[in-house]
Amino acid sequence: MSQIISQPAIRRLVKQWLREGKRVVAPVQIRPDLVSYQPVRSADQFLLDGFIRPLNSIKEVVFPRHEQLFQYRVRGKQIDLLPAPLPDIERIVLAARPCDAAALPILDHVFNWESRDAAYNQRRKLTTVVALACMEHDAHCFCTSLGGGPDDTRGSDALLFDLGDDTLEVRCVTDKGQNLFAGQTESSTRTAPSVPGPERQADLQQVGQQLEQAFERSDWAAWTNRCLGCGACAFGCPACHCFDMVDEGGPTCGARVRNWDACQFGQFTLHASGHNPRSAQSQRQRQRIYHKFHVYPQKFGELLCTGCGNCTRNCPVSLGVLPVLEAMQAEGA
């Protein structure tokens, strides 16, 4: 037996969540050729099928692109620091792709490593993730190479499967997911057939071995020299999490804020002295690959990549993780 729910029933649920003041984030068609996770304002606005992969990620729900850490006010000789209040809005991510959801447990490591990030953990606690299993993939998808797949449940509280004719199968993974759909589903004998994922495209074992000795290789330039140094890969990536902290404001009031940052920017490692330890773009690309497939796994035992392929989709020149790994593999160990 399985649990099913109709599309109209889901939309009614969303309406109710919005009425209850919850924030619902789901794939929204921005333009005919562009789907993006956006806060949903009405229950008929979001997609439950007909898209492959939004061009951004759901990480923003727990790790916003911009957040205030505290505000300062200067009055005479007195300086007041006003810490940012902890987030308190409940969030539901609907129809996230499994490769997005799978990145959340990866992010958890880094935000609970040396210190526990209070705002991140609070948002994480307030967030329920309902993923939607993939029916299709495109040339950039490579989740199966990294242990994921179209129905991967990592990071999801519930997983939906499209059964056609406006019906979805619901598989609850956690208590949060159970609570969300409690009393909303019907029993059925219909279950979703398993969908094949993209064919394996990167041999992780080989990559891992190569990275042991590849740091000093001169080929990095040839593999990556078309990189233009923007942050489209990192900002569309569900797992990239680098940030920058800056003070914004004036002499009397302002705020310390945390913004997304990206390792492909030339300024990312620029020292105050003017020295830049990663002075060439190939070194920045090497950093990105090493961080995802060598440094992070060594530290946390998990890859910093879910194989969603957004880096390549968003790249102005079709670079990204997979093309670099492929170039590496083509060269051999």
Binding site: L228, C230, G231, A234, P316
Partner: peptide, 12 residues
């Protein structure tokens, strides 16, 4: 509102 300041516009 959607701009994430990836600076792809500038870099390209």
């Amino acid at each position: 509102e959607r701009c994430v300041k990836c600076y792809a516009c500038r870099q390209s």
